Simulated scan of single mutants.
Amino acid sequence: MLWELIATVFAGLGAAGIALLLRKISRNSAPRWLIPAFAGAAMLGFQIHSEYSWFEHQRSRLPEGVIVVKTVEQTAVWRPWSYLYPQTLRFIAADVANASVNQLNPQLKLVDLYFFERRASARRVPQVVHCQQQAQADFSATLQIPPPDSAVDGQWRKLAGDDALLIALCHSGANSNS
């Protein structure tokens, strides 16, 4: 975030320098307000660009085998342009390449989910996905592992059949080590 602030300031200084150069070329006939207007427009433009390019930049940095399973697009009153084109400021990625299959019930897969948010550190949350029951639960010492072909209890959250995490883990053949 510090580097982004520094880049924003330099974008403003660069644009102010261009406006100052325009004033010198026009022999000071260009209005003085051009200098702060250019600086403000450049800083605002840089911030808008960095917010819209953040998601693609983060996604390109994910290692192979880590896929995006959910994005959250947001609009805000203080960002009126986001109503025309919503911004992706949060997303969830799953490490399907390193997902492991449970030895007692092969329908269960342990996977790490990574929660990314603009201007925040990524968080890793281990999850267990039950492919047959289409359910997900937080991995913990108290999680009851159901035997094969049995129903899940209240610790599990149902997933939609078209859930990206369920498809990535259970339908794409993404089985790996135990």
Rank of each mutant, 00 (worst) to 15 (best):
residue 166 L to T: 09
residue 33 W to L: 08
residue 108 L to K: 08
residue 153 D to W: 10
residue 60 S to N: 09
residue 141 A to R: 13
residue 83 Y to I: 02
residue 7 A to G: 12
residue 44 L to Y: 11
residue 135 A to Y: 01
residue 160 A to Y: 13
residue 52 Y to T: 07
residue 159 L to G: 09
residue 32 R to M: 11
residue 134 Q to K: 14
residue 59 R to D: 01
residue 70 K to L: 03
residue 170 C to L: 07
residue 30 A to V: 15
residue 107 Q to L: 01
residue 103 Q to R: 14
residue 59 R to M: 11
residue 112 D to W: 10
residue 103 Q to E: 13
residue 129 V to A: 11
residue 5 L to D: 13
residue 122 A to F: 00
residue 83 Y to R: 06
residue 139 F to G: 09
residue 84 L to R: 08
residue 62 L to K: 05
residue 64 E to Q: 05
residue 152 V to P: 08
residue 177 N to Y: 11
residue 63 P to G: 04
residue 177 N to F: 01
residue 167 I to K: 13
residue 27 R to N: 12
residue 46 F to C: 09
residue 121 S to K: 14
residue 87 Q to Y: 12
residue 130 H to A: 12
residue 126 P to M: 13
residue 144 Q to G: 14
residue 2 L to D: 12
residue 77 V to Q: 06
residue 65 G to T: 12
residue 19 A to P: 09
residue 19 A to W: 02
residue 39 A to Q: 01
residue 52 Y to S: 01
residue 119 R to W: 15
residue 8 T to F: 03
residue 97 A to C: 11
residue 94 A to P: 00
residue 11 A to V: 04
residue 66 V to W: 10
residue 157 R to V: 06
residue 62 L to M: 10
residue 66 V to N: 01
residue 87 Q to M: 05
residue 146 P to T: 00
residue 23 R to F: 04
residue 27 R to T: 04
residue 6 I to E: 03
residue 47 Q to T: 14
residue 119 R to N: 10
residue 138 D to A: 15
residue 112 D to M: 14
residue 13 L to G: 01
residue 19 A to Y: 06
residue 132 Q to P: 00
residue 89 L to C: 00
residue 154 G to N: 03
residue 108 L to I: 06
residue 95 D to S: 02
residue 175 N to F: 02
residue 58 Q to A: 09
residue 68 V to M: 00
residue 73 E to G: 03
residue 70 K to W: 02
residue 104 L to P: 02
residue 92 I to E: 11
residue 44 L to D: 08
